[in-house]
Design a protein around this nucleic acid. Structure first.
Lengths: 201, 201
DNA sequence: GTCTATACTCTGATAGAC
DNA sequence: GTCTATCAGAGTATAGAC
């Protein structure tokens, strides 16, 4: 029955992760104490130590989950489309949704990477690179097919597009004036067609 | 001679601000101790206390300077252009330059606002709103003149455009492959004309 | 104005009884 | 596995001599 025990520990660790993510997002990693985490989990600090040996370990594990989730959902969304242009639009929307639909872990992944220590930071960086290579491959393919203008640097395009979305996490509120879909439409409209009425400047 | 004394105190405070900004950017506000600030300034903690009574006061003052600097340079850049479209391009470039040309204070302003306490946070938020209203006015005027497509929400456009730039601070390196000018050109090309070869989807 | 020295609080982590 | 109790260290801020 060791399987049973270890899976219930996994479930407990997942619960700690989710509750910690909410705290890290609201207060920041440094300003959240392990006592506060334990309290929010309704256990005592000593018991928390059984799930995670250190506060850093919580953060690293959380980021691993977050980046895996982001990659999985974005790839799944883009793979579901046959048309290459619609595919990239679907990937953009998936990136937006995984970040803005209340997933605190992805938010923490984006904004707390400075809190990571040496080796852990390298690991998370490698995972992030893996995600970015996926985007570059998608964009390069489109450019080779002649669907993206040749004078656009695809790496810069990726950094600008994802950057615009990542920054949304700092201002987007679910109860705000615009819905996720509307924002996504505007973003896509700007990226794909631009904003000016008269082209040619 | 009280004027003399107070202006040399101001100069000392400015020096503390600049050195602190470098530390806050590199290590983060929470991970920087007042002892480290004092050491970097080559004074002792007790002497630092004469310049600034608390660590929070350093951060708030720094953000006031940063936001003022950003507003000033962006407005100056846009005012120097007669053509309304070139004006907005100049403002974009100014925002990029003030953020990416080694001004640590502006970086701290963008990424450490969570460290602010209640009343101070409200004050900085008000200043930030003032900056954003300046952008909205510029964009709305362009749309009314018929130069920006009517179906673009200008507030969302502002959030997306400035967001893309703000996020650059997380990846841009002066010694990287692309120069500031090249990145600015790509950004402007995307925003103004879009990326697709065949329009109409 | 600057220094030394320290007060006080909070932190992350853990030992050991149950 | 969970609890109580506590350790060692770091944090900010300041008092008081000079």
């Amino acid at each position: 029955m060791s399987q049973e025990y270890s899976s219930s520990l996994d479930a407990e660790r997942a619960r700690v992760l989710q509750i910690s993510a909410k705290l890290f997002r609201e207060k920041g990693f440094d300003k959240t104490s392990v006592r506060q985490i334990a309290e929010a989990c309704e256990i005592l600090p000593g018991s928390l130590h059984y799930r995670y040996k250190s506060k850093d370990e919580i953060l690293v594990d959380m980021m691993r989950v977050a980046i895996d989730r982001t990659i999985r959902r974005t790839i799944a969304a883009s793979a579901s489309m046959a048309d290459p242009v619609l595919r990239i639009r679907a990937a953009l929307k998936a990136h937006m949704e995984v970040l803005l639909s209340g997933d605190d872990m992805v938010y923490v992944l984006l904004f707390e990477w400075r809190a990571l220590s040496g080796e852990a930071r390298k690991e998370i960086m490698r995972e992030r690179d893996r995600y970015e290579r996926h985007w570059d491959a998608m964009l390069d393919a489109l450019q080779i097919q002649g669907m993206i203008r040749k004078d656009i640097n695809t790496k810069t395009l990726r950094l600008i597009g994802l950057g615009a979305i990542n920054w949304m996490a700092t201002w987007y509120r679910p109860d705000g004036g615009q819905s996720l879909d509307e924002i996504c439409d505007t973003l896509w409209s700007i990226i794909s067609r631009g904003i000016l009425e008269h082209v040619g400047r």
